[in-house]
């Protein structure tokens, strides 16, 4: 059964439509890549899924989105965001909070842990999964803003993983990373998909080909084609898709 289901999703910012009717099923415990040129609406779809879109007063959303068969717009938004975590394109730790606080904040706000011991264990385990623990174990009290870009992004991964989410949204998570950090993140995603559903936005087709199980190609707010990644890349059914995956459409 599909973990996430979009039914006729439409989003507009003010007068300009961004998503014009998206239908898409995202299977559980797999990596689904959303590919497409800049401005095709990939990031907007992610922000609908955890309802961060509601931070943009000019955004209008219609249609339905289901998580495990439940309409997310009927869910408590805090409960939704506990289950659906997100990694952003620009690493965005809260710079004045400490490394520890950045990971612990969500757990504390949502009262997901009892006592300091359990909190520490959860933070430690999240930092370990994000492969950051060894680099920061001796300076957990340091402001997160002092970390390097690659470390900040892994801190954001740890922050998301601390929730033990069901769905992980990743908005071009490696766009600002060097090849080494990119490889680390990709390897991590392949490990994580055993436990959760990952929706990966990328504008770099080879990344989708490397790690995704399913791929959807978005163009001007609509899904041109979607299916198993292998099929999309080896026998695309649409000329636009073929152009995109072969690097002739940006």
């Amino acid at each position: 059964m599909a973990k996430v289901e979009f039914k006729n999703l439409r989003v507009s910012f003010g007068a300009s439509p961004v998503i014009t009717g998206v239908n898409l099923s995202i299977p559980d415990r797999s990596i689904t890549a959303l590919m497409g040129p800049s401005g095709s609406g990939k990031s907007t779809i992610l922000r609908v899924l955890n309802r961060l879109i509601e931070l943009y007063p000019e955004a209008r959303v219609s249609g339905e989105v289901y998580l495990d068969g439940q309409n997310i717009f009927d869910m408590n938004v805090l409960e939704l965001r506990r289950k659906v975590q997100m990694i952003f394109q620009i690493p965005n730790p809260i710079p004045n909070l400490s490394i520890f606080e950045n990971v612990a904040l969500g757990l504390k706000l949502n009262r997901l842990v009892r006592g300091r011991g359990e909190l520490f264990e959860r933070v430690k385990s999240a930092l370990e999964k994000a492969q950051l623990w060894d680099e920061v174990r001796n300076r957990l009290d340091m402001p997160a803003g002092k970390l390097s870009g690659g470390q900040q992004q892994r801190l954001c991964v740890a922050r998301a993983l601390a929730f033990e989410p069901e769905v992980l949204l990743a908005d071009e998570p490696t766009a600002n990373l060097d090849p080494e950090n990119t490889a680390k993140v990709e390897a991590l995603f392949l490990e994580l998909k055993k436990e959760m559903t990952i929706v990966l936005v990328t504008h770099y087709p080879p990344q989708a080909a490397r790690i995704s199980d399913y791929a959807a190609f978005l163009y001007k707010g609509q899904i041109v084609e979607w299916g198993p990644t292998k099929d999309i890349f080896t026998k695309p059914g649409h000329e636009l898709t073929e152009k995109y995956v072969t690097g002739r459409l940006y």
Binding site: N50, L52, L55, R81, F88, N92, I94, G106, N110
Partner: peptide, 15 residues
């Protein structure tokens, strides 16, 4: 307060 930081705050389930 930068928009990405604001998004981070809400993404971790802050009211």
């Amino acid at each position: 307060v930068p928009k990405p930081v604001e998004e981070a705050i809400y993404a971790v389930g802050a009211t």
